[in-house]
């Protein structure tokens, strides 16, 4: 379970350009559920997602992960949690050009020191599950949009994270690929993973597998605590 208590995030604090992206956000996200953070551009969805995923620290407030307070953790502990607990799927696939799909997928697991043969086997299995095993040796610049998206999903899963975080995952996908993406999310849910998605795409937040939609506006949750 993820619990946010009075989370604030202010950019450029103290400067004339100070901007408060999140204001006193109180939110509880249950395990093994698909939660969608919905709201217009600038509502704070991505900022909230980055705070939940330990990619940025709040300016005030605390985040608890399975009862453990994580915002105060020194960076090296936070890195460990980020690496093992969260899998990130970004709006753009953000694959590294010049190396193969397989190498891209295995990259996040390198710091953990797993044996390369085992890692390769796991990565190939992940690629096979999403029907792109045949592209494993291809360079990422040769992939189509949908294939690149699936490769980035396999990369997010390589460390077997309990929580999948997806930021506007369907923004660059057509309708067919968006449906395909939601099928993959359904599979994650069936495997017991927690999924948090930011989106203002009705195809996402109106999907049957979504358990909960949290509406954000101007850095606040509509209706107060959620």
């Amino acid at each position: 379970m993820i619990e946010l208590v009075n989370v604030r995030k202010v950019f450029n604090a103290g400067n004339p350009s100070e901007f408060s992206a999140l204001n006193s956000v109180n939110l509880t996200i249950a395990q093994n559920r698909v939660t969608v953070l919905k709201g217009p551009s600038g509502s704070g969805k991505t900022t909230l997602l980055s705070v939940i995923g330990c990619m940025s620290r709040p300016s005030a407030g605390r985040v608890h992960l399975n009862g453990r307070e994580i915002t105060s953790l020194p960076e090296r502990f936070l890195t460990d949690i980020r690496r093992k607990t969260f899998g990130f799927i970004f709006q753009q696939p953000n694959l590294i050009k010049g190396i193969s799909v397989l190498e891209n997928v295995m990259l996040p697991a390198y710091p953990l020191g797993e044996k390369r043969s085992q890692l390769k086997k796991k990565a190939m299995q992940g690629l096979a599950d999403l029907n792109i095993a045949g592209k494993s040796a291809s360079k990422v610049e040769w992939l189509s949009g949908g294939e690149a998206q699936r490769a980035s999903i396999v990369r997010a899963l390589i460390n077997d994270p309990a929580i999948i975080i997806a930021d506007e995952p369907t923004a660059h996908l057509d309708t067919t690929l968006s449906y395909r993406f939601m099928e993959i999310i359904e599979k994650f849910k069936a495997e017991g993973k927690t999924v948090i998605i930011t989106s203002h795409d009705p195809l996402v937040y109106e999907a049957a597998i979504v358990d909960r939609v949290v509406n954000l506006r101007d850095g606040r949750i509509e209706g107060g605590t959620a």
Partner: peptide, 17 residues
């Protein structure tokens, strides 16, 4: 105060690092 989520506490956490 590590139990506090106040802005000052979070600033001190970043500063001490």
């Amino acid at each position: 105060d590590i139990r506090s989520g106040d802005e000052l506490q979070l600033i001190l956490e970043r500063k001490t690092y």
